[in-house]
């Protein structure tokens, strides 16, 4: 996730108290627009609005690909992101406004897809798959960023699937421990334990 999108994510989280109000304001009649909140777009998606869905996908695709890269590896990340959004479309009636924020629900679908993938496939190191080349001619900084990301992913392959998921959501997606617990369907103290053990193990591996 880029620094800018991380900031947006954090800002988004701080706006928790107002998103239901935003829906009321922004769901009025009129065309689907980019300044609508996720929740307002999702309400339109529930009516079958594909343009609203396109906006939601474009808004979150980088985050979901990044999360999948951390949990299952780079090679399958884009396929998994595609599956995640197709599931969001087919299961769109399951999202209930007021019950869960769209982003929390989206991450839950994504984490479930990643865990299902890990359980179906032979456990292996997520660093032994080739990095997909970005087709943008990148500067040196981009290469270094890719190398650092690959090194971290390699270290994370030493963690259990639940440690890896918790660490990814907490540090990479800047979610709170409470949100991570909600997404993973675990108690807060279980997530705190996953974060602590995962971090300790990563420190040992990355030394």
């Amino acid at each position: 996730m880029s620094g800018m999108s991380r900031t947006a994510a954090v800002d988004d989280r701080h706006a928790t108290g107002t998103w239901m109000d935003d829906i009321a304001v922004k769901l009025g009649p009129g065309p689907t627009s980019e300044d609508m909140t996720d929740e307002a777009l999702m309400l339109r998606v529930q009516t079958g609005d594909k343009e609203a869905f396109r906006l939601l996908v474009a808004r979150h695709i980088d985050r979901i690909v990044g999360t999948a890269r951390r949990i299952v590896g780079a090679a399958e990340a884009e396929d998994i992101a595609q599956d995640v959004f197709l599931k969001v479309w087919t299961a769109r009636d399951q999202w209930a406004p007021g019950h869960a924020r769209f982003r929390t629900w989206l991450y839950r679908v994504a984490v479930n897809r990643c865990i299902d993938h890990l359980r179906r496939n032979k456990p292996g190191s997520i660093d032994d798959v080739p990095e997909i080349e970005d087709d943008t001619p990148g500067p040196l900084a981009q290469c270094e960023q890719r190398e650092d990301a690959t090194r971290l992913r390699s270290a994370m392959s030493h963690l259990s699937e639940h440690q890896r998921t918790a660490i990814t959501l907490y540090y990479h997606e800047s979610l709170t421990a409470g949100e991570v617990a909600e997404i993973m369907g675990l108690r807060l103290n279980a997530v705190e334990s996953l974060l602590k053990r995962g971090r300790q193990k990563l420190r040992t591996v990355l030394k």
Binding site: M1, R6, R70, D134
Partner: peptide, 14 residues
């Protein structure tokens, strides 16, 4: 180190 960002998708790929 833990918060390093993943490379973003290029516009074309996205």
């Amino acid at each position: 180190v833990l918060m390093q960002s993943e490379p973003t998708l290029s516009d074309t790929r996205r």
